[in-house]
Computed example of a mutant assay.
Amino acid sequence: MATHFILVAIAIMALASTLATASDPSQLQDFCVAVKDSKSAVFVNGKFCNDPKLATANDFFYSGLLTPQNTSNPVGSTVTPVNVMQIPGLNTLGISLARIDFAPYGLNPPHTHPRGTEILVVLEGTLYVGFVTSNPDNRFFTKVLYPGDVFVFPEGLIHFGLIRKD
């Protein structure tokens, strides 16, 4: 009888595992506008959330990506981030944005984003990009991009960008 119970339990667990899926849970609310005020009741992603009824369009707005940045530094590039610090409404949405200005032959050094995929759009110049896979064979993907081209760096993979010419 005990053997029969064990076999039934194993069969149920096997069936349950084939039906199970893993993913990030759905958000509990539409957004969580980050505020520094600790009087707010909800603490999410390391930030306090403003009462959603107090949110305004400005909580989801940033103006400043149009201005080119100074690239006279050792790597010849400057990143202008747009994340929850610039747009409080990005908190908990799992997305950010950046502008990267390159000097001729400038470099965006190899780096990763462990929790997000990066998508890149070239507006001017020529950019050499690449990433390395982790499984199964550590492949190296590279491409030369031109204005209007788009490239995706999958989540967590080491990637880079290098200006080939101005």
Rank of each mutant, 00 (worst) to 15 (best):
K39M: 10
L28W: 01
A103C: 13
L127C: 04
I119D: 00
S72L: 11
N58T: 13
K143C: 06
M85E: 14
V150G: 02
Q69E: 13
C32S: 07
S17Y: 12
A22N: 08
P136W: 07
V33I: 13
G76E: 05
S23I: 08
N70Y: 11
F48W: 12
F48R: 03
F153N: 01
T133M: 10
P154Y: 05
N108K: 03
I87Q: 02
N135S: 14
V129G: 06
N138R: 12
N73L: 11
S96Y: 08
P81Y: 02
Y146I: 01
V33L: 10
Q69H: 12
G106M: 03
N83Y: 02
K47Q: 13
N108W: 00
P88A: 03
L54I: 09
L28Y: 05
T71V: 15
L127Q: 02
V152K: 01
P110S: 13
N58H: 11
D51H: 07
T112A: 01
I95V: 15
A98Y: 01
G64L: 08
T21Y: 12
Q86C: 00
F151S: 00
S38Y: 10
H159F: 00
P74E: 11
G125W: 06
A55L: 02
G148V: 08
Y146L: 11
D24Y: 12
F60D: 03
D137V: 06
P68T: 05
P114C: 05
K143M: 12
L28K: 10
A41C: 08
T21F: 13
D51A: 14
T21S: 15
I158C: 11
G125V: 09
V121T: 12
L157P: 03
A16T: 10
S134W: 07
P110A: 12
V35H: 01
P88R: 04
L66C: 08
A22D: 02
N91M: 03
A22F: 10
P74A: 11
V129T: 13
L54T: 14
D30M: 08
D59A: 03
P74I: 05
F61K: 11
D24G: 13
C32A: 09
K47H: 15
L19E: 10
N108V: 02
A55G: 06
V121E: 09
V79M: 08
E124Q: 15
L120S: 05
L97E: 04
D59S: 03
N138F: 14
D37R: 03
A98E: 05
N58R: 13
S63I: 14
S77E: 00
R115F: 09
V42Y: 08
G106S: 06
V144A: 08
F102N: 01
D101R: 01
P104Q: 12
T56E: 11
F48Q: 02
P68I: 00
H111C: 09
I95K: 06
F102T: 01
Y62R: 04
P154G: 04
E155C: 07
L54N: 12
N50Y: 02
N45H: 11
V129K: 03
P110R: 10
A57P: 00
D37A: 08
H113F: 00
F151H: 04
